[in-house]
Design a protein around this nucleic acid. Structure first.
Lengths: 142, 142
DNA sequence: AATCAATAATTGATATATCAACAATTATTT
DNA sequence: AAATAATTGTTGATATATCAATTATTGATT
């Protein structure tokens, strides 16, 4: 039985978790009481104002149920407003509040900085290569 | 504000989740009622019989509290036995039961197969490159 | 030996992940 | 139009993630 930590996917796991913790720590250190996951949802609403929760779940790669619950928190934190969609009453209409807009932009700056730090000393070409590799793995897992 | 899904770390996230779901699905399809995370813990105990929970948490890159709780489940599923450590009573002594040993090996086979599938059409050299890149990112996040 | 610091593990609180079951609404079929 | 299917979202149950606080024990200091 091969050792646990020899595999690429172990390193992938570790990298993912390390980066997540790093990013979350920095957001908190900057004084924002929001998780990266919550921010990702705010961001996708801000980028696509007419988005459905189902679409969000695909974009951020999470379960529908998780999205519902994260959105409930964002509403009670007063970052989002939910109304029923005018033309399709199954859907919900999500709108960012003013403080929702503000925190989305503020945290975005931190996120950009996080990525810069995380990718320090790694050149564009390598990043590009890696992306297509990851894409290949994603395809293989379907 | 740049688009969500352009970044390397978004792809990393997606890849990680896709692989995890893929792997979990296959384990379940094979009839084993165990999560990948639980299996990882069984595996690290089997590889290091005298391991502490703290060490496990470092190896599988999770919080101490998570490890405690996952181990509680593994004990009630009768895959693990917990006793106090003879020479240090703060520690717990973890031992795999027979069925624990069996499932660890069985799921290992599936895991090997999963990795093979996930890494299909990707050559050794590229995998190697990617590992060191991920390692670099991990370093950058410290 | 008594005190203090460090280590190992647990517990509480809250957030998220996942699956399954469900309700409401809309779209399609007959 | 009525029946059926598909879509959108919610809820329940359970597992895991994370932080903070806590207990028990051991190690180090004085």
């Amino acid at each position: 039985m091969e050792k646990l930590n020899d595999t690429l996917l172990y390193t992938l796991d570790k990298c993912f978790r390390t980066y997540n913790q790093f990013a979350q720590r920095n957001v908190r250190k900057a004084g924002y009481d929001i998780t990266i996951d919550q921010w990702l949802i705010l961001k996708s609403v801000s980028e696509n104002p007419d988005i459905t929760q189902n679409d969000i779940s695909k974009i951020v790669f999470k379960d529908n149920a998780s999205i519902t619950r994260i959105i409930q928190l964002l509403i009670s934190a007063n970052y989002l407003v939910r109304e029923t969609h005018p033309s399709d009453r199954r859907r919900v209409n999500l709108t960012l509040t003013e403080s929702g807009k503000k925190i989305t932009m503020d945290v975005n700056e931190i996120a950009v900085q996080n990525r810069t730090t995380a990718l320090e000393n790694i050149n564009e070409e390598t990043v590009h290569q890696m992306k297509s590799l990851l894409q290949q793995i994603i395809e293989n897992c379907k």
